[in-house]
């Protein structure tokens, strides 16, 4: 087996008494698409926040691409190659999708020195524009590129978040319920885009998602969280066949 890209060991996180994550261990290999499922309040979003450093876990370690992330600031984790989207959308108000992508591309390069701006060399370069257009095209956002973000629908907004994460050319994408708020057709489209991203850019994806068909169609392995504990993991088929999982989360209509 290859070295995992992401290795999470024994992460524990409590919020004033509530144990949101209890000794969670999981891993993602390079280029792999992995599902993370569980009922609301299971701790999935909290795990993402711990991975990116927005929350500090009480215990446990996160290794990414050979780095120990424990003492690494959130923005540096992003530069190491972890991109994410948010369950509650976090867009840059007042900016267009095009500007979202440009700023993300620039942030990844991290070469924004003040003196460059002051010498008039801060404008987006040809390559930056090209990669932003590529992502616009990939996500089918070209027509909306110059509209203010507030004017876009929820579904488009989710795509902009995804595109913004893609612009930092992540090795690993953390997607937090990307299909919530999307209709059937949009969800299918999104699944298609994710498959493309995974294949063409060989980006690994850790996908939190309630839409079971979508999870099944995309992922090879699944982890199941319930009340902060990992109750099952393994290949998609075996996990979804598991009784405990069905009881905890999926009900009977799988």
């Amino acid at each position: 087996m290859r070295d995992p890209l992401l290795k999470v060991t024994s992460i524990t996180k409590t919020f004033s008494g509530i144990t949101a994550l209890d000794d969670v261990t999981l891993d993602v290999s390079p280029g792999e698409v992995v599902g993370l499922v569980g009922p609301n309040g299971a701790g999935k979003t909290t795990l993402f926040n711990c991975l990116l450093g927005q929350l500090k876990p009480d215990r446990g370690t996160v290794m990414f691409a050979g780095h120990d992330l424990t003492r690494v600031a959130p923005h540096l984790r992003a530069r190491l190659g972890i991109g994410r989207t948010f369950q509650r959308m976090e867009l840059f108000s007042g900016m267009t999708p095009w500007e979202h992508f440009l700023v993300a591309g620039r942030a990844r390069r991290g070469d924004g020195r003040l003196w460059k701006d002051l010498l008039g060399m801060g404008r987006p370069s040809k390559e930056e524009r090209a990669s932003a257009s590529d992502v616009l095209e990939l996500l089918g956002l070209t027509a909306d590129a110059r509209r203010p973000i507030e004017a876009l629908s929820l579904g488009r907004g989710r795509l902009v978040e995804l595109g913004r994460a893609l612009m930092i050319e992540p090795k690993l994408l953390l997607l937090d319920e990307p299909s919530s708020g999307l209709d059937h057709a949009e969800t299918a489209e999104l699944a298609e885009v994710l498959r493309n991203v995974n294949v063409e850019r060989s980006t690994a994806i850790l996908l939190v998602e309630h839409d079971v068909p979508m999870v099944r169609s995309l992922v090879s392995r699944v982890f199941v969280l319930d009340f902060g504990t990992l109750i099952a993991s393994g290949t998609t088929e075996s996990v979804f066949a598991n009784n405990a999982v069905q009881r905890a989360y999926l009900g009977t209509n799988v």
Partner: peptide
């Protein structure tokens, strides 16, 4: 340039700005 765009992003959402 970079400075202005970063500040715009930070005004929009600090969490998201850190995430990129």
């Amino acid at each position: 340039g970079t400075t202005g765009r970063f500040l715009d992003a930070l005004r929009g959402s600090e969490t998201a700005a850190a995430s990129i």
